[in-house]
Simulated scan of single mutants.
Amino acid sequence: MATARFPGLALGWLTRAVQDDRVMYGYLAIHTVGWLWGLRFLLRKWRDEAEIKPPQPKTQYITQETEDALKLDTLDTMLHHYNHAIRETASKIVCDRAVNDRDTVDRLLWGITRPDYDERMENLRALAIITDPQSLEALHHWKAYAALVRSLELCLEPEQEVLGQEDWDEFPLRDMTEKLCLIFISQLLNNYGPQKLIKAKFVEKWLAKQNWGADLDTRRSNFSHYYRTRRNRITDIIASVRSTDIGLEALEIAGLQEPESPPDSDVEIEINDGGQPMIERFSVLLPNNIDVNGLREDERARVLLRSLQSAQSVEEQRVRHRHREAIVLNDGSRPLNSDDIIQRPESPTSG
């Protein structure tokens, strides 16, 4: 009976609920929210499916074979591309090709030695663009150093002011071509040393031709004061040149530095001037009536004589070796022959 009565109760409750306005309003509200949410979900899904997404670019690396395969017209097109990354990559490829091409580098080095200022400046800027610290080795040869020194020679001012005792630094006021050459030289010295620069006659052809003064003493004084008080690329180059013996000799010959006397000059003068042998000079330490042949092996006088004889022999060998030194006058522009070698004359005591 309970089961038969349940449909009737349910139907009666439903009839009363339908007649209640609040239940109807709630049902309509829930139904409306559900339809709106479902419609929004369907529209969003349809939008995502209809959207055309661009394919993601794949990361690709340019190999050396790819760079070598690029033709000049292709590189020219890449250099004028609207994308900055493509232009930068093309510029690097062009610079790498230029710095690794010996003919291109030689042509630029020839251009920086031209008397025309604009041509020289154009080639210097091109050389600065294609080189970097990794490719600087392409300029580490005789022709490059000679070209840089020649370019500096063309920058010399006939009416340059005396580089005197002033406290201000004139380097920022120098010409741009001169500063570019000094930048190249400074970078080369930091990596490879000053030997090739000195052999290219940098001191004689440019440094000594700066206006250091009229007389020799003034030149040496101004040069020394400039080196001690300035801090620029010129003083850095001078410091590198002074760090070698051939650099000091070049500065002395150019009259920029006083010659330094060797520390053993007093001994050489005594020997070269025909002075007494070392044993005779130390005879005051021995008795006047001593018989050398009658001395025993263990006596102090005989030990002293042996030590003096040994010291004299070593000194004579050193002086004889020094007198056999030679000067080679060859800048590398021609084959070496016997006329380029000037030997030091033999000393009277060298035997």
Rank of each mutant, 00 (worst) to 15 (best):
G8S: 13
Q19H: 09
K45M: 07
P55E: 12
Q60G: 09
T66A: 15
T77V: 04
H80R: 15
H84P: 02
E88R: 11
V94H: 01
C95D: 14
C95R: 07
N100C: 07
D101V: 09
L108M: 09
G111F: 01
D118N: 11
L124D: 04
L127R: 02
W142F: 06
V149N: 05
E153H: 03
E153T: 14
L154E: 09
E159H: 09
E161M: 09
D167N: 13
D167Y: 06
W168S: 14
P172W: 04
L173V: 04
L173S: 15
K179I: 08
I183G: 04
L188N: 07
L197C: 08
K199C: 09
N211R: 14
G213C: 05
R220S: 03
S224N: 14
I234F: 01
A239L: 04
S240M: 02
S240K: 09
D245Q: 14
L248M: 12
A250M: 06
L251E: 14
P262F: 00
E268C: 10
I271D: 01
S283M: 12
V284A: 12
L286M: 12
N289W: 05
D298Y: 03
D298C: 06
E299D: 15
Q309Y: 07
E315H: 02
L329K: 13
N330Y: 05
S333A: 06
I342G: 05
